[in-house]
Deep mutational scan, measured.
Amino acid sequence: HNGKLCKLKGIAPLQLGKCNITGWLLGNPECDSLLPARSWSYIVETPNSENGACYPGDLIDYEELREQLSSVSSLERFEIFPKESSWPNHTFNGVTVSCSHRGKSSFYRNLLWLTKKGDSYPKLTNSYVNNKGKEVLVLWGVHHPSSSDEQQSLYSNGNAYVSVASSNYNRRFTPEIAARPKVRDQHGRMNYYWTLLEPGDTIIFEATGNLIAPWYAFALSRGFESGIITSNASMHECNTKCQTPQGAINSNLPFQNIHPVTIGECPKYVRSTKLRMVTGLRNIPSIQYRGLFGAIAGFIEGGWTGMIDGWYGYHHQNEQGSGYAADQKSTQNAINGITNKVNSVIEKMNTQFTAVGKEFNNLEKRMENLNKKVDDGFLDIWTYNAELLVLLENERTLDFHDLNVKNLYEKVKSQLKNNAKEIGNGCFEFYHKCDNECMESVRNGTYDYPKYSEESKLNREKIDGVKLESMGVYQILAIYSTVASSLVLLVSLGAISFWMCSNGSLQCRICI
């Protein structure tokens, strides 16, 4: 991952900044910058967002509201009850120091605090018919004063009620008058409520006091790749198909172990950190130390980045220098085999997901714990399936590479015959000098055995068991695999060879 928040398929997220979902939807004055928000790819909250409900109280069923919003990608904020005409018999300019803005008392931008007009609070009834052709999110509140005197001074009615009804919602609220500790300079409380109004449905408000009335509502448009994440990451000019709280993932790998919460087309989250597919040879310690064997393909974004291909070729060293050249036929066979294998694994496992966190309130801790156990169970199954699949494929890959290298080895052996000696570690020792032209003939299969047989015969008789390297004779190393990324691999195959001279070296080696 890149540690950044990015656009998702070209669409920017909605960053709530210092506000949370509650503050944004109710219209906390400190969240005025969010009022123009219309569309987004996903919503970003920060872990310690401080601006929620400015007048103390709870947004009821907040967790369910977050779940609903996680599939919303755009909205239209509109005046559901026009301020100047909807409440002619009531005062609608209630403000509070708890919702101060720029040093002055204020109130929510989407709600109206209705109080008595003169000395009376006549029963009010108002309704709205949803003609938007889509779901409408309606929010309101109920004020709970701290004393009967406060109730009387604001609403005149000691036994007030609030009723809200639609086809799918029907509740009646009565204020709970009680002494409470002071929070944000208030002994009173406000509880906030919401409902989704279906197209064509009607919502009716009736009250004799204590109503925090809707002013603006939201017509919602769903987008199934949307979601809500909690993150401290910063926004950058970048684009992605998959976003996590820790950063964007741009990967076609089937798995990731970065974060379980994802938005967009994302690899499946697994616990494993070692889900690797081999593309090189079986481990040979001396070669492995030099980083030549054991190439791997990573299938977990965050564990290993991208696929690494092994390729086969020849390396030689003689009086004229040293050089490398790919054996294109065996390399292409290996590439085709690995590509098919990788595609097979991805096809089997690479279903892209959006995974969002589930919200539970403080009273639902047991449910949250149960949900976590269920999620953990599914996660263990996914991890096991992934590891088992790759384990089985790896064994076949190792066998496949062994065969490829063996074929190259036999190709060289059949040409050199007794003009060189096998020394048991995949290397041959020449009994004759071999210049670049000679080396090329070994690589392309045109090695002239009779041409060098007499010199080889004489050297075999002279050496008589002495280690060949100390006599200045020449080696050919018969097994060799270097490691390159897919891009470098293609470039390498396009070149005939490249040279690395070893000044004054008397050794001649050709490596497979």
Rank of each mutant, 00 (worst) to 15 (best):
N232M: 04
H236T: 09
C242K: 02
C242N: 09
P245N: 05
G247K: 04
A248L: 04
N250E: 13
N250M: 01
S251E: 08
N252Y: 03
I258H: 08
V261Q: 12
I263T: 01
I263R: 08
C266N: 10
K268F: 06
V270W: 01
R271G: 05
L275H: 02
R276A: 08
R276M: 05
M277W: 02
G280K: 05
P285D: 08
P285E: 11
S286I: 10
Q288K: 02
G294M: 10
E301F: 06
T305F: 08
D309Y: 09
W311C: 12
Y312A: 01
E319C: 01
S322P: 01
S322I: 06
A326W: 01
G337T: 10
G337R: 15
G337F: 10
I338P: 03
I338S: 02
T339G: 06
K341D: 04
S344A: 15
E347R: 11
K348D: 00
M349T: 07
T354Y: 14
E359V: 15
F360M: 07
F360K: 06
N362I: 13
N362L: 13
M367N: 05
N369M: 12
L370S: 03
D375G: 03
G377A: 09
W382F: 09
W382D: 10
T383K: 09
N385R: 03
N385G: 04
L389Q: 05
F400L: 13
L403P: 01
L403T: 14
N407Q: 13
L408P: 07
K411V: 06
Q415N: 13
Q415M: 09
Q415G: 07
L416C: 07
N418C: 06
K421W: 03
K421C: 04
E422W: 06
G426L: 14
Y431R: 15
C434L: 09
C434N: 07
D435C: 08
D435A: 08
E437G: 10
M439H: 11
R443G: 03
G445P: 03
Y449A: 14
S453D: 01
K457C: 04
E461K: 09
K462R: 11
K462N: 15
D464W: 00
G465I: 14
K467P: 10
K467I: 05
E469M: 00
Y474N: 05
Y480A: 08
A484Q: 02
L487K: 00
L489K: 05
L489P: 04
L490M: 12
S497W: 07
F498Q: 11
S502R: 06
N503H: 03
S505W: 04
I510T: 01
